[in-house]
């Protein structure tokens, strides 16, 4: 199968929480490959297993030719995360062991943390990439929710649409000279006034060992 320019769209069924900013298509696909192949989550840098995804790499093979997610926020909404110590159960089941507990400090502390969710325009998240259409469709079919707090139903995907698309100069990682994903500062076509940060160039993005100065979307 050959790689081709693709537009990937997730149609959402409601709000999504993206406290970490846009979502990376390459790491989303890598996570699905790991689940499919039974690779346990790498919780330390040493445990990282190389994972390949059906997206083409750039000529230097440093990262894959896939954008980060692009979406416009129509409305923001506030929520709270609550946690309470199980007082009733402590009284009933902790007899003899739980003599006192503190709900104002320590491990039993109750909390109410505000968080923000986003209602996106047309309830849509988009990515662009150069990859193999069928394997990408199969991997994304396993993704039911996007973003944070998926466990409580946020970011639910109603359907995925992966289709061939027209390209433009810099496709799929540049749009009008602006990066659509972290790029090396010397990437051809990159504008002069782009934001730069010290970040990781490819997945897993939490691995700080390969951090470098990169141009970032924003």
């Amino acid at each position: 199968m050959t790689a081709q320019p693709l537009a990937v769209t997730a149609h959402l069924a409601g709000p999504i929480a993206l406290p970490g900013g846009p979502l990376a298509l390459d790491s989303l696909l890598a996570a699905q490959v790991a689940i499919r192949d039974g690779i346990p989550p790498a919780l330390t840098p040493e445990a990282i297993v190389p994972i390949e995804i059906p997206i083409e790499r750039e000529p230097g093979a440093r990262f894959h030719l896939a954008s980060f997610s692009v979406s416009e926020v129509e409305r923001y909404e506030g929520r709270h995360l609550n946690r309470r110590f199980p007082v009733e159960e402590a009284q009933a089941l902790g007899r003899g062991r739980v003599r006192n507990y503190r709900v104002s400090a320590g491990a039993g502390k109750s909390y109410r943390i505000p968080m923000e969710t986003q209602h996106l325009e047309s309830d849509m998240v988009r990515w662009w990439c150069i990859g193999e259409i069928q394997p990408i469709r199969e991997l994304l079919a396993m993704v039911g929710h996007l973003g944070k707090k998926r466990s409580t139903g946020l970011g639910r995907v109603e359907r995925w649409v992966v289709e061939p698309c027209e390209t433009w100069e810099g496709f799929p990682v540049l749009l009008d000279g602006r990066p659509l994903r972290p790029l090396p500062p010397d990437w051809p076509g990159l504008g002069l006034d782009v934001m730069t940060e010290v970040r990781t160039l490819t997945y897993p993005y939490w691995d700080g060992r390969g951090r470098q100065l990169v141009a970032v979307p924003g």
Partner: peptide
Amino acid sequence: GAAALSEAALR
């Protein structure tokens, strides 16, 4: 009296 859970187990 069978449970007598610790605070950590309760949590």
